[in-house]
């Protein structure tokens, strides 16, 4: 149970970073921390005590297998997270080229 609560605390740390920091890079870092906590939470739900990895081998012992479904879903989510993060990075590069700063208080004009 304490693992779930620590995961939730990690989520809140990421939320705090997104809402209070003014640097675009710090905001992206907070977003990725939130993502990591959600991945870990989903994999933690599917874990079975003394389970074995979901790979079938010849000399398999008669133990329960860890739930493969959350792992497959998280694998998809990690790749999608990479795609969204690279989009954010590209936008950050463009903003830095135009405004010469990462500070969102100074990025006030919305013209292309």
């Amino acid at each position: 149970m304490i693992v779930f609560i620590l995961c939730f605390i990690l989520f809140l740390v990421g939320l705090f970073g997104i809402l209070t920091s003014r640097n675009i890079i710090k905001i992206i870092i907070g977003l990725s921390i939130m993502e990591f906590s959600v991945y870990l939470f989903l994999v933690l739900i599917g874990y079975i005590e003394n389970g074995q990895a979901p790979i079938i081998t010849k000399d398999m012992i008669n133990l329960p297998v860890v739930d493969p479904l959350p792992q497959a879903m998280v694998l998809t989510a990690i790749v999608i997270g990479l795609a969204t993060k690279s989009m954010l990075m590209a936008i950050a590069i463009r903003l830095y080229k135009k405004f010469k700063t990462f500070d969102i208080r100074k990025i006030t004009s919305l013209k292309g």
Binding site: I25, I28, S32, Y39, V43, L44, Y47, G51, Q52, A53, P54, I55, V66, Q71, V74, L75, I78, V79, G81, L82, K85, S86, M89, A92, I93, Y96, F102
Partner: peptide, 26 residues
Amino acid sequence: LLKAPDLAIVQIVVETVTLIIMVAVI
């Protein structure tokens, strides 16, 4: 530790690529 080796491999690759891109940005 949670018996998810595929996820560990993918995460280590993604994390390295993201770190390199972010360092290149800043």
